[in-house]
Simulated assay, not measured.
Amino acid sequence: MNFDLLKSVLELVRQFIQQNENKALYNNDLQGFIHWINDCHKNPSESENPWWVGKELGRSSESIINTLLIRIGRFAKMYSRSIGNSVFSSQDDFIYLISLRTRGAMSKMELIGHNVSEKSSGILIINRLIHNGWVEQTKSQEDKRKKYIQITEKGISVLEEHMQEIRKVSKLVVGNLTRSEQMLLITILSKLDKFHDSFYKMNLTTASLLDMVNKELN
């Protein structure tokens, strides 16, 4: 019997159990172990030169990235409909609540801009949250002309009540990505988000935004 091989396999099993214990990215069975092994020993060339639909016909990497981001966003939106048994009208409801819970009170336009919503739809979301008693509008102590939106105790309560469902959906959206893949994706998406956040803020009106996009394309 090859004891060295057996020891190596047992060490891999130990690593698999340890890494999968908290995150549970893989099933705790043979199939899950095999998937983990494959992810940990991928051929580097596969990630450096991936295949995508239409590549052989000249479809660019920019085109497929844009399509994939849109598709993943739509999957996330569909999954989010299951949260709260229709307590939330859309995923924007709890996304706005999470923004206020984590970042504190903001003006209407700050809240709308933070969530990259159009002004008209953002106002409708905020009004819906106010109507439900989940957020409230208050005046600044320093400047009474300024008004801020802040989450209420009722809003915190409804958010906490459904946070487990939100986490489950978030985990589903991440899918079968390994821990290292998740960290890499966070780095890449954060870089993209930073770029577009600055780009968007410099061109807040639709007209100027379109002008800037046309300049970038020419």
Score class of each variant (00 low, 15 high):
47 S>E: 05
53 V>F: 11
77 K>E: 15
38 N>C: 12
49 N>C: 03
83 I>C: 01
74 R>F: 08
25 L>T: 12
53 V>A: 08
101 R>L: 12
17 I>S: 09
19 Q>D: 14
81 R>C: 04
61 S>T: 13
24 A>N: 12
68 L>H: 05
52 W>M: 01
56 E>C: 05
80 S>V: 04
72 I>A: 06
80 S>A: 15
47 S>M: 04
84 G>S: 03
65 I>T: 11
17 I>F: 10
70 I>S: 09
34 I>D: 07
102 T>Y: 08
66 N>M: 10
20 N>A: 08
67 T>S: 07
100 L>P: 02
71 R>N: 10
87 V>A: 13
56 E>L: 11
80 S>G: 05
95 I>S: 09
36 W>A: 01
35 H>S: 14
17 I>P: 00
35 H>E: 13
65 I>A: 15
48 E>H: 08
51 W>F: 13
43 N>A: 11
100 L>F: 11
69 L>Y: 12
60 S>I: 04
54 G>P: 02
19 Q>R: 12
74 R>D: 09
46 E>V: 05
89 S>H: 07
56 E>Q: 14
68 L>V: 09
71 R>A: 06
49 N>Y: 07
71 R>D: 10
42 K>W: 01
53 V>W: 06
49 N>D: 15
67 T>K: 11
73 G>Y: 11
46 E>H: 05
25 L>H: 03
99 S>P: 00
18 Q>D: 14
88 F>I: 07
102 T>L: 15
37 I>Y: 03
51 W>N: 10
46 E>S: 12
77 K>Y: 10
38 N>L: 15
82 S>F: 06
32 G>K: 02
36 W>E: 00
50 P>A: 09
88 F>T: 01
57 L>M: 09
85 N>R: 10
13 V>Y: 01
31 Q>M: 14
59 R>T: 07
45 S>D: 04
88 F>R: 00
83 I>Y: 02
25 L>Q: 02
49 N>P: 00
57 L>S: 14
100 L>V: 07
19 Q>A: 14
89 S>R: 15
28 N>Y: 07
